[in-house]
């Protein structure tokens, strides 16, 4: 490497370092303030906590108590995990059937699923809530059903693109060996679909975990509130909500995502790229 190139690389590195610090600053800001008393946050928001302003984990303890944070986290987890599992199993099966059974009906279904991807949520939000109310499904199980319905568009679309590339000969061989279609799908096709399944799982998990409006409308006024609904409910509706506690609650809500991200970042980044290119 020439000296000129080395110098250039160092400059690029320093530039990126500054940008990375700027990108991390908002999170750093919330973290330092979550350890300060509320008066000190408004006095010197950008200062590090000192022995005078440091309140240990008080804000966290109060925040967990006041928001019932663990309860919200429990429902967020249950709804996200169950919805993602159901989406993966059922939409991959649907995509398989649509691709393998050719005909007008399959085509109509396919285009209906694709169509649903471009419709913004506001278009169906009111009527969907009314329908859920009449069907008495304003509970976590109903949420999971609705997420399966809303997630179906993108997930079926992505699985269809992949099923097409699975060689049909393998399936025929399995059928001749006496597998019924269900066995053929789960024993032969699904293992091949695994990379797509991971992508679909990550995209849906990110969406459902962070979703606010659907859970707000369906279970917003019950004990089943998820984390985003809880945060909006507490912080948004009371203007004078204790700043220190608010900061602690914000840190608590991003903590699970950051932990998850550090462990699965390779899958997440690859999944997002694959999803963007196909969607």
């Amino acid at each position: 490497m020439s000296t000129k190139k080395k110098i250039k690389n160092i400059i690029v590195f320093i530039l990126l370092l500054f940008l990375a610090i700027a990108f991390l600053y908002p999170i750093f800001f919330v973290v330092i303030n979550s350890f300060k008393g509320k008066l000190f946050i408004s006095d010197a928001p950008f200062a590090l906590p000192t022995s005078e302003t440091f309140v240990k984990f008080n804000n966290y303890v109060m925040g967990i108590e006041k928001t019932g944070f663990f309860n919200a986290m429990k429902w967020s987890l249950i709804i996200t995990v169950c919805s993602v599992l159901l989406i993966i199993i059922f939409t991959s099966m649907t995509a398989y059937w649509i691709t393998r059974v050719k005909g007008k009906f399959s085509n109509i279904l396919y285009y209906l699923f694709v169509f649903s991807m471009i419709v913004p949520f506001q278009m169906v939000m009111y009527t969907m809530t009314q329908l859920a109310d009449r069907m008495h499904i304003r509970n976590p199980a109903g949420m999971i059903l609705l997420y399966l319905g809303f997630g179906a568009g993108l997930s079926v679309f992505m699985f269809c693109g992949f099923v097409k590339s699975v060689p049909i000969e393998i399936e025929e061989a399995a059928m001749i060996d006496g597998c019924n279609p269900l066995q053929t799908f789960f024993k032969v096709v699904f293992p091949i679909l695994k990379p797509t399944a991971i992508t679909v799982a990550i995209l849906n998990a990110m969406w459902i975990w962070n979703d606010y409006l659907l859970p707000y409308l369906i279970i917003g006024f019950s004990d089943y509130q998820t984390i985003p609904v809880r945060v909006q409910y507490l912080v948004g509706s009371y203007g004078n909500f204790d700043m220190g506690i608010m900061m602690a609650v914000l840190v608590l809500s991003i903590l699970p995502i950051i932990i998850f991200y550090t462990f699965c970042q390779k899958f997440i980044i690859e999944g997002v790229v694959a999803g963007a290119v196909k969607g």
């Binding site: 059922f90 009527t127 069907m135 799908f185």
Partner: peptide, 29 residues
């Protein structure tokens, strides 16, 4: 093979389709 698979419509497609109709198709129209 297509014919056998076709018969499995209630297992392969129906669950997704019911959820899809409740969440999207009916509310849309």
């Amino acid at each position: 093979m297509q014919k056998t698979t076709k018969k499995y419509f209630p297992i392969f497609v129906l669950p997704t389709l019911i959820a899809f109709f409740i969440a999207f198709v009916i509310p849309f129209f």
